[in-house]
Nucleic acid binder design. Sequence first.
DNA 1: GGTAACTCGTACACTGGTGTTCGACAAGAG
DNA 2: CTCTTGTCGAACACCAGTGTACGAGTTACC
Lengths: 190, 190
Amino acid sequence: MVVTTRRADAQRNITAILTAAAECLSRDPAVSTSEIAKAAGVGRVTLYGHFPSRAELVDAVFVQAIATGEETLGQVDLSGDPRAALTRLIESSWHLVDQYRALLMAAQDALPPGRVRELHADPMARVERLLERGRTEGAFRTDLPTSWLVSVMHNVMHGAATEIQAGRITSDDAAPYITATLLAAFTPPE
Amino acid sequence: MVVTTRRADAQRNITAILTAAAECLSRDPAVSTSEIAKAAGVGRVTLYGHFPSRAELVDAVFVQAIATGEETLGQVDLSGDPRAALTRLIESSWHLVDQYRALLMAAQDALPPGRVRELHADPMARVERLLERGRTEGAFRTDLPTSWLVSVMHNVMHGAATEIQAGRITSDDAAPYITATLLAAFTPPE
DNA sequence: GGTAACTCGTACACTGGTGTTCGACAAGAG
DNA sequence: CTCTTGTCGAACACCAGTGTACGAGTTACC
């Protein structure tokens, strides 16, 4: 929906709504549109003027979050030793997962099923590529499907986010724990 | 709330509501009380006559589910080789996790925070005991906290349930995948 | 400075759930 | 058989959120 002729204040409000929504949804996946509008310093009607429904707003925020994340992940060096590369990738991914945890939940019950996964295609492909390479080089196990390994990685990271939120581990512990766990889990059985 | 003097049909309805709720909540964590009542072959008013609120009903169902699960898990032989014992425990736990997946989600947003974990105390203690023993015997790694290992086990199993629901793995694959993954993840680093 | 684009608050209609009240009726217990 | 306990459906009040309508006011653009 890129409209060339759009007044400057309208564009300003759109980005204000987008950033406010990102922040609000990251705190509480179930925030109302009223609160988002208030946080953006904008009337609720204005919000609906730009986003036809709550779902489309959430979608836009999610798309933006993925794009931002992709920018970060794109800079990670995935060459060289697969295990070292995976460590670097976890280090970067982890912060994103922790940050966008609540947003993901918001997306999951506001967006049509499959949409979340669809938007995750790029980051998932990156992980898959690395894992596949590691498998051919003998660094990662091949007795389980790659898609399963991706899912394990995903779930361990999200589990770590839950543990942090519950105060059972600290944010600093998370990355080393995840790395140690996944490297072991992905190691080929003797 | 064990009332000695309770008419037979009332008791019958209570159990009917409980089992119907268990089934409905296992399909859709957000079912309305109306649908539960209908499934139990009972008026909605009757339901509220026995359970003061939706939350208390969910709680009761959850308590019952935990109790049923404990009965199964209590029969698992956890002696002998810790790795073999863990395999047996996973085999049994897995079915329960898969079965009660949606119910857990219902509990998570209907019950006060912490209540879910409180009710999970017993099954969690069982896992912890086995892991601790395996650690002292050198079968499991000791460079990560036991609580973290428990969390990994929990998240990998729930992740598998998600994969099944999405049709990416079959129900039969799940147990071997989980076992292979967790045994590797818990192995002490050389 | 005129005009089109945009914003705002208030108010409204609608939805879908929860929990309660009522009075008539049925079923179990003694 | 009687009386208490329980059940039923329908109706109601309530709540919180979504999305729309209106009309007056404001802001950017040329």
